[in-house]
Design a protein around this nucleic acid. Sequence first.
DNA 1: CTTGATTACTGAACATGTTCAAATTGAATG
DNA 2: CATTCAATTTGAACATGTTCAGTAATCAAG
Lengths: 233, 233
Amino acid sequence: MPAKYTDTVVSRREITTPKAEETRERIVDAALDLFRDKGFDETTMRDIAGAAGVATGAAYYYFRSKEELVMAFYARTAEEARTILPPAIDRSKDLRKRLRAVIDTKFEQFAEHRRLLIAIVRIGIDPLHPLSPFGQETEVMRNESIDTFRAALDGSTTKIPKDLHDDLPRLLWMYHMALILFWMFDQSKAQRRTRILAGGTLELLVRLLQIASLPLMGPLRKKLIGLLKAIEE
Amino acid sequence: MPAKYTDTVVSRREITTPKAEETRERIVDAALDLFRDKGFDETTMRDIAGAAGVATGAAYYYFRSKEELVMAFYARTAEEARTILPPAIDRSKDLRKRLRAVIDTKFEQFAEHRRLLIAIVRIGIDPLHPLSPFGQETEVMRNESIDTFRAALDGSTTKIPKDLHDDLPRLLWMYHMALILFWMFDQSKAQRRTRILAGGTLELLVRLLQIASLPLMGPLRKKLIGLLKAIEE
DNA sequence: CTTGATTACTGAACATGTTCAAATTGAATG
DNA sequence: CATTCAATTTGAACATGTTCAGTAATCAAG
């Protein structure tokens, strides 16, 4: 029976012995390898357990569900990003290039796992699901990701209107999620179309931001911000 | 074992006797009732079969999967829309109102089935899935829906730039899909936030269209259209 | 070292989507 | 009516995510 996500939302296995940690790692490694090679749906919990050298139910001691195993992948890339992203961003002061660095890095990290991302989206498109990128349980990771965009903005030469300053990072995060979604399904060679889309929209975006600073754009900004506020409650 | 959607994409049961048609209807009715009352995940194929008074496997004679049963819902609303949408649109010549009529009608039709729509999205977010709203198998229904937007545009007083004429209906269709997505997850009373969002973005949209007709906007339009073409192959 | 408890793990059992070989039905044919 | 054959229906069997009662390993305390 598939787990209902009305279940308690508590992260499991707080503290662990090194031994247990090693078992846990073995299970994650086996899972990610199999997901990458065969796909999420095609990989069986029995496969994973077998490859990790444990019994069928062992994975459930560490993870609440098969889906939670893909979160382990997400967590790993986030960890990695923490070290490679800052230098990538700071290679330029140009806003477009800085944003491009963030997005391109994500794509590189995900490149080998396109199919796995589809599984993540299938799970995460529902904000009520605990593992949704929009949900509670992923809040810490999400905020870290949003802060990355804040850093990209703050260190750039482009001046951001004061009233947009707070909301813009989150908007950019949502924009980058939409791009990732597009990228996932982009069947063109080396995701050429996504590159075009990213380039085009980023240029448009930066230009809009420059225009938005003009004094006579105040009312329009205000309307947009008002709409945003009304929406997010 | 969940069905893999690399299976043949052929619609099932072309011709049927009245008797079989009646059984099929009974299964759909039972399924939709249960989906509405208990939710998609919480409804069992055994439940459905039982409620329809047939054996467990019977549904699979008419539908390839549990998921395909929700398409039956989608097909029914599309059928209904065919009769109620045209008069609703033609109540006004104002583009904003005409578009609003299309969207509001959809919301009314879906109102009782918010949870079911989440299931549809979980399925359909993957364009490789045969039942995806972006996929092959739903092309006919999708085109019909897009044509609705074409009708709303063509009958309005707002003048549409020639070069946008072909692409705009599809863009509007995508916009309305995004709205429906937002609506599905909108927990506010009577989906107040979605209403605000729809009102705000529609006004913005129509205004942009009016501005877009200005001669000096030609290059910008061209850039946008170029981007669209590059993306869609 | 022994004992007790906590942690880590096992594997059978269960629920549910799906398949399939066999049984049933019903209409067309002789 | 009897026969035949395809359409329809059955229900047991299967695959897989998940649970759980029990077993083994590890550790703390005496």
